[in-house]
Design a protein around this nucleic acid. Structure first.
Length: 584
RNA sequence: GGAGGCGUGGUGUAGUUGGUUAACAUAACGCCCUGUCACGGCGUAGAUCACGGGUUCGAGUCCCGUCGCCUCCGCCA
């Protein structure tokens, strides 16, 4: 067999009728008319119809084919009659009349069908992922991901970035997510950690004079899974020396827009708009707002509240925030109650119909006043609460209202940069300040003197890139001077000794001439998910985990033998010896 | 850790206030069919209704518990 003769089914559309062709692939659908057999042969590129007449010596074999058998067909390419053209497939103008038909492999009856477009329970899809991935949609997702990788690599390489690989077996560091640990056999009782990101290595590469680094890298965080989060995920990790914030934002922006244009085919506005963290929180109640629709949170000042609703005015006097969201459509009392419950705030309502104010707050308003608040066709939902926690609740409510009202135009996509994040946040549980991003993030120059006196007010050189409400990239300019780094460590309660113990290698490296540097990391799975129009990253990962962290295909995580444990010097103690049987 | 939704032939679903033999589509198997392309027609087989307990003369249906999957909150520097 000379496989070099084989051509992809998609190529057949452009070939001249009468040509002899060799194709191979899977039997997608099989149509048997007694005296005439058709089957669609599927390969990675698409489908082509094979037609077998009764006088064909391969008729009996063709009639006996089953879905997903692997076959090879040599034959003549025929132009179909006008009435027999199938406009739904790319090769619908032609069909193959076989002179040879060979079954390369038979297939057992399938638990799930690659030719069936209906929904199948996801754990079953993952159990038989190799079948699931045969579906054209999944093949498109894999190809899109491949294209995104190629475009990103080319784009960065063209700008002088070197792809440098960093270790997966590393040391556990404090802060951040729970580490995955790997026991050491050679040093029993000690553990490697899988990287949550190559953060420290890429900074060391800057000290090493690499200047421009990137990597497509697997990262590991042992936290609960979500539709947009897996235990293991891929970043496009970037770091550059001799830059400040706008340089990295420009770089990230060019990469994001290049991917959007070349891979997703989106034409988006340039430059990408920017919001400060504060602006995003005030208007959208989140640091990753979906800007494909408006409906901002309306802040009601004590002045605006004066002489209107007494309990709201009182809440404002007490220092609470009072804010409103404008639902574009009217809501019933029942719907508002349900929204209140879901949002975790007490929602008052204000509407305006035929010049009269209505809703639960309507009695405090006359028509013109209600109008001045923006009450109109829909209903104004008003609530009060303390601080950013309240804004976050209103932000979640905004998102829900926007989605339910269909305010998100299909096909619309909107990037936004979020800047000026706080450097530190108060951790009530541990009673200490902790880094919002990570402890190597540089403060804004103008906020440097406030680090000790007012740590919560210090803004940082962190920036996040948000697409359609998902954080798709994030990074910062790093601290490259040791004295400043030590001031930050002191603020987050990391003693000199602890800092020395945990980050000794980094601090030491910084003694020997560290250039100013910064970087950004793209959450590659999320970005590809959005470009593919999917709603979970599992759809763009070849072999993802269930939300329980289990892999129903391989049975991971699995128990290991006593001998394996002994070799590592480990003893497993469990109340229940089999806490989670593998999915079967 | 918490909340919600879901769990019925291989797959996807229906199953009313508890009541005869658990229905439909599709896949599988058999027969028929010469222009289909989600082919069509006839037939066959295929379900301990996730698991365990309870209420009842009687449970897919009601109650309690457990498990699994999905979504969200917590968590994710």
């Amino acid at each position: 067999m000379d496989w070099r003769q084989r051509c992809a089914t998609a190529e057949l559309a452009g070939m001249r009728p009468g040509a002899e062709v060799l194709v191979a692939g899977w039997v997608h659908r099989h149509r048997h008319h007694g005296g005439l057999v058709f089957f669609d042969l599927r390969d990675r590129s698409g489908l082509v119809q094979v037609v077998v007449h009764p006088e064909n010596p391969h008729f009996a074999l063709a009639a006996a084919l089953h879905p997903e058998w692997v076959v090879q067909v040599r034959g003549e390419l025929h132009q179909r009659d006008q009435a027999r053209v199938n406009p739904k497939i790319a090769t619908g103008q032609v069909e193959i009349v076989p002179s040879e038909l060979t079954v390369l492999a038979e297939a057992a009856p399938l638990p799930i069908s690659p030719a069936d477009e209906g929904e199948v329970e996801e754990s079953l899809r993952l159990r038989h992922r190799y079948l699931d991935l045969r579906r054209p949609q999944m093949q498109r997702n894999l190809e899109l991901r491949h294209q995104a990788l190629q475009v990103a690599r080319r784009h960065l390489a063209e700008q002088g970035f070197w792809e440098v690989q960093t270790p997966s077996l590393s040391r556990s560091t404090p802060e951040g997510a729970r580490d995955f640990l790997v026991p050491s056999r050679l040093a029993k009782g000690r553990f490697y950690a899988l990287p949550q990101s190559p953060q420290l290595y890429k900074q060391l590469l800057m000290v090493a004079g690499v200047e421009r680094y990137f990597q497509v890298v697997h990262c590991f965080r042992d936290e609960d899974l979500r539709a947009d989060r897996q235990l293991e995920f891929v970043q496009i990790d970037i770091e550059q020396s001799f830059v400040d914030r706008d340089d990295i934002i420009r770089l990230g922006e060019s990469l994001a827009l290049t991917l959007a244009r070349e891979v997703a085919g989106w034409q988006l506005e340039e430059p990408i708009p920017r919001l400060t963290y504060r602006e995003a929180m005030e208007a959208y109640g989140t640091d990753h707002p979906d800007l494909r629709f408006g409906m901002p949170i309306m802040n009601l000042t004590p002045e605006a509240l004066a002489g209107t609703v007494p309990f709201l005015a009182e809440a404002a006097r007490q220092g609470e925030r009072v804010a409103a969201l404008a639902s574009p459509r009217p809501l019933s009392r029942k719907e508002i109650d349900a929204l209140s419950l879901a949002a975790g705030v007490d929602l008052g309502s204000l509407s305006l119909a035929e010049g009269k104010a209505g809703g639960s707050l309507g009695r405090f308003f006359d028509g013109p006043l209600a109008q001045s608040w923006g009450a109109g066709e829909g209903v104004l939902l008003v609530a009060h609460g303390p601080g950013d926690v309240f804004l976050e609740k209103m932000g979640a409510l905004r998102l829900r209202l926007g989605r339910e009202a269909g305010l998100i135009p299909s096909g619309a996509h909107q990037f936004v940069w979020i800047t000026d994040f706080p450097l530190l946040e108060w951790n009530g549980e541990d009673s200490r300040w902790q880094a919002v991003h990570h402890p190597f993030t540089a403060p804004l120059d103008e906020d440097l003197e406030r680090i000790e006196e007012s740590p919560g007010d210090v803004r940082s050189k962190q920036y996040d890139l948000v697409l359609d409400g998902f954080e798709v990239a994030g990074g910062s300019i790093r601290i490259h001077q040791r004295p400043l780094q030590e001031r930050i460590f002191a603020q987050i309660g990391l003693s000199k000794e602890e800092a020395q113990e945990k980050f000794q290698f980094l601090l030491e490296a910084f003694r020997y001439g560290a250039p100013p540097h910064g970087g950004i990391a793209f959450g590659f799975d999320r970005l590809v998910m959005l470009m593919a129009g999917m709603t979970t990253i599992r759809e763009v990962i070849a072999f993802p985990l269930l939300s329980s962290g289990a892999d129903p295909l391989t049975g991971a995580p699995s128990q290991v033998t006593a001998a394996q444990l002994a070799e590592l010097g480990l003893v497993v103690e469990l109340a229940d010896p089999l806490p989670r049987p593998p999915v079967s």
